[in-house]
Computed example of a mutant assay.
Amino acid sequence: MTARRRSAGARYEARWGLAFVLPCFLLFLAFRFGPAVVGTLLGFFEYTVGDSPTFVGLDNFQRMLHDPLFWQALKVTVIYTVLYLPLSVGVSVGLALLVRRSFRGVRLFRSIFFLPVITSLVLAATIFTWLFSSSGPLGELIGGSWLASPVLVIPALVIVSVWSRFGYGMLIVLARLQDLPRELEEAALSDGAGPWQRFRYVVLPQLRSAIFFLAVIETTNSFQVFDLVYVMTSGGPGRSSYTLVMDLYDQGFKYFDLGYASALGVALFVLTLFVALIQRLLIGRAK
């Protein structure tokens, strides 16, 4: 009898708990997935601010395939990602290895390395804009502005983006490094393995899952780069740094072609999901 009363009391408390959580959960669904669903549907309509939407089917997506600006933005985004991803992951792994050991001041160094992550990217981009300008110290190294060069503008953006993100990746890799058994490295050291051999054959295989997780996160972040480009170059010079999200922004908030902008958003989501699935397959195969 006592057990039944306890069970009934537990169910009663669970129902009240669900009743209190349900409004927040519904708001989360509405504001998290509602805009995504509406934006996806809007891609099949022709819609501008002030006019009623008109269903056009796949016309926006066909227009996208024949739009040279879309392909230019896609090329810039891919080049940016190809440059950014290995550099970001490599710097994150290298710094995680540096601050892995316990020594005096290691927590201070970890905090300093993580500081760019919590720094305002708009503020940092404004400062780096001056650094890369013809009058800045980095611009004086090449005798001109990085951001005015079609060749150097993307590397400049990559440098700033890596600076702002490597602290996050460092923590991801460092968390995995803390779980590695030291006995494996000690056994390799006793067998005469050098630092590179220990890293390549002992540490790196254990970091595979963390590195691929970081690769998925950073790939998604690189496909969605906007604020950095908007502040530093606005897509210039000559659309040399014009990314997909910049194209989406211009179509939606400059030309108010919300239907086509939504179609660009759908294409960006599909592209990001496709790359993430490929990386997920690589993770599964590695396991």
Rank of each mutant, 00 (worst) to 15 (best):
T40R: 05
G43Y: 01
F44Y: 13
Y47H: 14
Y47S: 03
V49T: 15
V49M: 13
V49P: 01
G50I: 09
G50W: 05
S52P: 01
T54Q: 14
T54D: 06
F55N: 03
F55T: 08
V56R: 08
V56I: 14
G57K: 11
G57P: 10
G57V: 13
D59M: 03
F61G: 01
F61V: 07
R63A: 13
M64H: 03
H66T: 13
D67V: 08
F70G: 02
F70Q: 01
W71H: 15
W71S: 06
Q72V: 03
A73S: 13
V78W: 02
T81S: 14
T81P: 00
V82T: 05
L83H: 00
Y84E: 06
Y84W: 03
S88D: 11
V89L: 15
V89M: 12
V91R: 02
V91Y: 02
S92V: 06
L95I: 15
L97S: 04
L98D: 03
V99N: 09
R100D: 15
R101N: 12
R101G: 03
S102C: 02
F103R: 10
F103Y: 13
G105F: 12
V106A: 13
V106I: 13
L108V: 15
F109R: 05
F109Y: 14
I112S: 07
V117C: 05
V117E: 02
I118H: 04
I118Q: 00
T119C: 05
T119P: 00
L121M: 10
A125N: 07
I127L: 15
W130Y: 15
W130H: 12
L131R: 04
L131Q: 04
L131H: 04
S133Q: 09
S133C: 06
G136Q: 04
P137A: 11
G139E: 09
E140K: 14
L141I: 15
L141K: 08
I142C: 05
G143S: 10
G144L: 08
W146G: 08
W146M: 08
A148R: 11
S149T: 09
S149F: 05
V151W: 04
L152K: 12
L152I: 04
P155A: 10
A156E: 12
V158N: 08
I159E: 01
